[in-house]
Design a protein around this nucleic acid. Structure first.
Length: 657
RNA sequence: GCGCCCGUAGCUCAGUUGGAUAGAGCAGCGGACUUCUAAUCCGCAGGUCAAAGGUUCGAAUCCUUUCGGGCGUGCCA
């Protein structure tokens, strides 16, 4: 049941009498901002008045006169220039909540016309440690998968792994030169991961070392240019010239950037050179960079030994990654990585060339797409394919295999141009029926407002990020438990179990509660806070309900099946009850915009309404069994809504905190 | 240079796609614990929605320009 769509249904016939296309007008029915304007407001009388050449209030009155809504709403009020304000009847709210309470889905009906979605998300590079950059795609993609599926859509979640790239050249090279066989046999995952890190470190060392002089030069050049520019500015008396100031700022930030990068390069070099064993290794493998590329090329061209090693390594690398997915509770339906499409790339290029959609340019095969300055390159001049090629092959495969209505790519905003081109190209290629959408998201920033990095400038490992969150959660849970009026209630193992749930939840929720299109600042303290729009606050609200049930020895099953009517007397009860019925509106918004933060916003509103209720309406000590039973049911519905809502975001609850 | 995104309270962020007096949380100030979890709740204060112009009954939201920031920009993904 969805109040908004119900209202639309009631307004439809009335508006259809007035205009040919009432859909636009129906969109103007929405929840009221202010309770004094009722629960819902209808704003369509104003534009309609203009269209029909009548005073809007008159139009509003006509609409109201025709409206069949007495079972659902009190008498509509017309206010201001022509707003129609609706107030839902308490009897109706009670009736609906009774139905929701008896339903496992809390009254949320499945969509009439299910669509088939492929959601492409997470997509890390196998064999490289996952880092903070993977969190948003993984968490948002999982939440969308869960939400759309719950609404009745068919969803295929696909982890488009990077399993065919240079990182395999790296571990193959590492395996051939540095492997400790006994370690590999005992703990293949650990050994492969060590090899990756080692080879990566050596490559970075050589790159950094080779670039050091150039970096210094570059800094000197920039310093000189900046000096000259400033001097020229002074001489020309342009100190206040905006353009000149802007150019100088740009030079300054380039310089700062160059210095930062030089410092990072120096520290990479230092780290290796200060370690005797590493330094020796680095000297011995001076050509490691190109050697790794050639191992990768051999793998791609079908070299038997490298193919065999790849087949051997891949499951281990994938297993290593599974630890993270287990912790996050993320499951995929399919995992077709880049390697899966390897065999199809040639024919993709041929197909596009044959159809005249792609042609040779400067040695590469390109698609020149209308409205784009740079071409979409699908084959490099050295003959190698690119991710553009793989992405096209992937679309082709998905269309043939599943015939989806929509393919969603949960990938950060920096790739928006790539996807614009990809979608454009795919449509030219003939895939023009399917919805192709880039679910873009912003960057995770550190507290300094710059992309979240470790102090040394490296990406923050995802595993250590989660560990840290669980640690912080443990101290939050422990501190709270110590402070309880009757002394601590939780054993250490319970605290740890709770901390694991709370810690992971905090990370996920912080991500999901922000509008995905904006960047957000990562802060353990904020995400773990009990105040504000956090998972912890939601989980706390849930736990408070459970605490009431425990204290009152409530048989929850009996409560749900008893069929005792709800009472709505107190304003806080009404506000809570109505909010409970809005769950489906929030889910609808998530599905329309592909934005989970609509759901977190809803849950926060619900939790706040529950807090007010909790404050003003004693439950166990209510006036009489009737009221007590009614309030218990409101508590139960709140807890179940929070639990289900969080579940659709991939977040668990605990009974005690 | 060109393209895309962004600019909302001291800070971190929402803002239901153009609706009525722009909202939360932190931080600040003032209140509420012999009470179902005070990890909470209530109240106060805090705004030229970057700026200017335009579109209309009505703009944080749409258009134009300016300022400020981020990202991308022919052979990485």
């Amino acid at each position: 049941m969805n109040i908004l769509s119900l209202l639309k249904k009631r307004f439809y016939p009335v508006l259809a009498e007035l205009v040919s296309d009432p859909d636009v007008l129906l969109e103007m029915i929405r929840p009221s901002q202010d309770p004094k304007f009722g629960d819902y407001q209808v704003n369509c009388a104003m534009p309609l008045g203009k269209q029909l050449g009548k005073p809007p209030r008159e139009v509003a009155e006509e609409i109201v006169a025709q409206l069949q809504i007495t079972d659902l709403c009190e008498d509509p009020e017309i206010a201001g220039p022509g707003f129609i304000n609706l107030r839902i009847k308490n009897t109706w709210i009670v009736e609906q909540l009774m139905k929701s309470g008896a339903d496992k889905r809390l009254g949320i009906v499945r969509v009439d016309t299910p669509r088939k979605f492929v959601i492409d998300f997470s997509s890390p590079n196998v064999a490289k440690p996952m880092h903070v950059g993977h969190i948003r795609s993984t968490v948002i993609g999982d939440a969308l998968t869960r939400s759309l599926r719950f609404l009745g859509h068919e969803v295929i979640s696909d982890n488009h792994l990077g399993d065919w790239g240079t990182q395999f050249g790296m571990i193959i090279y590492g395996f051939k030169h540095f492997a400790i066989k006994s370690d590999y046999e005992r703990q293949p995952v650990d050994e492969l991961s060590r090899l990756y890190k080692l080879v990566n470190q050596l490559i970075e060392y050589h790159q950094a070392k080779a670039g050091l002089a150039d970096r210094e030069d570059h800094i000197l050049q920039l310093e000189q240019r900046l000096n000259e520019f400033s001097k020229a500015m002074e001489e020309a008396g342009r100190q206040k010239d905006k353009k000149a100031k802007k150019d100088r700022r740009s030079l300054e930030s380039q310089l700062a950037d160059a210095r930062e990068k030089a410092a990072l390069a120096k520290s990479i070099v230092m780290t290796v050179e200060s370690d005797q064993a590493l330094a020796t290794l680095a000297a011995k493998h001076a050509e490691i960079g190109s050697a790794v590329l050639s191992e990768t090329a051999k793998l791609h061209s079908g070299d038997e030994e490298n193919r065999q090693l790849w087949h051997e390594f891949l499951p281990h690398c994938r297993a290593d990654m599974q630890r993270i997915y287990d912790r996050l509770g993320v499951v995929f339906n399919v995992e077709h990585g880049e390697s899966f499409y390897h065999e199809q790339l040639e024919s993709v290029v041929t197909s596009l060339v044959t159809r005249g959609l792609a042609r040779e340019s400067e040695g590469a095969i390109c698609m020149f797409l209308e409205g784009f300055k740079a071409p979409f390159i699908i084959r490099k001049k050295d003959g190698a394919f690119l991710y553009a090629t793989t992405d096209l092959a992937t679309i082709q495969f998905r269309m043939l295999e599943w015939e989806p209505d929509a393919i969603l790519y949960v990938v950060d905003h920096r790739q928006s141009e790539h996807f614009d081109k990809l979608f454009f190209g795919a449509r030219q290629w003939g895939h023009n029926q399917v919805e192709l959408t880039h679910i873009s998201f912003g960057t995770v920033l550190g507290e300094d407002g710059k992309p979240f990095k470790t102090r040394s400038g490296a990406a923050v490992g995802l595993e250590s990020l989660l560990d840290e969150a669980v640690n912080k959660a443990l101290s939050v849970v422990s501190e709270n438990d110590e402070r309880k009026p009757n002394g601590p209630e939780l054993k250490i193992e319970e605290r740890q179990r709770i901390a694991a749930v709370v810690g992971h939840a905090a990370i996920k929720y912080a991500d999901l509660s922000h509008n995905r299109t904006s960047d957000y600042v990562f802060s353990y303290d904020k995400m773990m806070a009990l105040e504000g729009n956090t998972a912890t606050y939601m989980q706390y609200s849930y736990a408070r309900v459970q605490s009431i049930f425990a204290r009152g020895h409530i048989d929850v099953d009996a409560l749900r099946t008893a069929g005792t009517p709800l009472e709505i007397a107190h304003a806080a009860e009404r506000a809570l009850a109505l909010e409970l019925l809005r769950f489906s509106e929030a889910l609808q918004e998530v599905a329309t915009d592909y934005r989970p933060n609509h759901l977190t916003n809803y849950l926060f509103e619900l939790a706040k309404k529950y807090s007010v209720f909790f404050e003003h309406c004693p439950v166990l000590k209510a006036d009489g069994p009737q009221q007590r039973q009614s309030r218990l049911r409101l508590c139960d519905l709140t807890a179940r809504t929070i639990q289900l809502g969080l579940e659709l975001l991939g977040i668990d609850v605990v009974d005690r905190m």
